[in-house]
Nucleic acid binder design. Structure first.
Lengths: 113, 113
DNA sequence: CCGATCGTCAACCATCCGGTTTATAATGCG
DNA sequence: CGCATTATAAACCGGATGGTTGACGATCGG
C-alpha cells in the first residue's frame, strides 16, 4: 500500500516547522530533484540536508525513486491534506473580532511611540 | 501594535506539531479558558501544560487576559492564515497523479504479497 | 490575618534537533 | 581496474524541548 493513511500530524507539522524544509518542498513543487540538487541551495553540508530530506520522507511528504546512484525525490502532498484540514478548521477564528479590537485600540488610545 | 506581522512560520508550525497543543487550540475554539482549565484534561503537571501554553503564546496563537489571579486565554488564529497559505499552496500537489499511479500499480503488477 | 487557589519561575533531567566531521557503500566513467 | 560522484551511516556536540519537582507571588475568601 503506497497510501500511508496514518499521517502523523505531529510529524507533518514538525517537518513544516523549518525554513529549509519548507524551501525544499517549494523546490519539489517544480518537479523531481535529486538529493544533491535539493541540498545545493543551502549553506550547509550535504549530510545536514540529507537529514532534512529524511524528515520530509518520514512525514510522508517526500517519495524517493532510486535510479543508479541518484535518488530522485518528489513531493507527495497527501499528508498535507490532513494538516490543511486542521489549519482550516481554526483559520479565521476570532480574527475579525480581534482585528476590530486592534483598530479600536489604535483609534481610541494612542500609547507610547 | 497588537498585530504581530512577522508571523514566524517556524514557530507556528512548531506549535502545531504537538498533539497536546493542537488539543488546546481545539479547546480554545470553544471560547476563553483559564490556564488551569486548559491544563486539566491532560495527564501532566500544571507546569508542563503551562509550557505548552507559552509555546502557543510565543507563536502568537494564544492571547492572555489577566484578571485577578486568573489568566483567561483565547485563540488568535491570525498566524494560522500564513500557515494555511503555505499548506494550501502545496496541498493537492501531485496527489491526483500519485493516486492514479497507485491504482495503476495495484492494477497492472501484482507484486509480493 | 490565614489559608487555599491560580499561576509563574527556576532548577534539573532525558531526549531530540540541527549541525558538524569522518568513514563507507554503491554506482558511473575513463 | 581505478577514481570521482552520489548518497548514507555513525559519532559527536551545543542548544532546544518536554517533562518533572519545589519554591514563590499574588489573589480570593473566610
Amino acid at each position: 500500500m503506497v497510501d500511508d493513511r496514518h499521517t502523523n500530524l505531529d510529524e507533518v507539522f514538525h517537518a513544516l516547522a523549518d525554513t529549509t524544509r519548507r524551501a525544499m518542498i517549494a523546490r519539489l513543487a517544480s518537479g523531481e530533484h535529486t538529493v544533491g540538487e535539493l541540498a545545493r541551495p543551502f549553506e550547509m553540508s550535504l549530510n545536514a540536508a540529507v537529514k532534512h530530506v529524511k524528515v520530509l520522507e518520514r512525514a510522508g511528504l517526500l517519495r524517493r525513486r532510486v535510479q543508479g546512484r541518484a535518488h530522485f525525490c518528489s513531493l507527495d502532498a497527501r499528508p498535507l491534506k490532513e494538516a490543511a484540514a486542521f489549519v482550516r478548521a481554526y483559520e479565521g477564528f476570532w480574527s475579525d473580532r480581534l482585528d476590530a479590537l486592534d483598530s479600536l485600540l489604535r483609534q481610541t488610545s494612542r500609547p507610547e511611540s
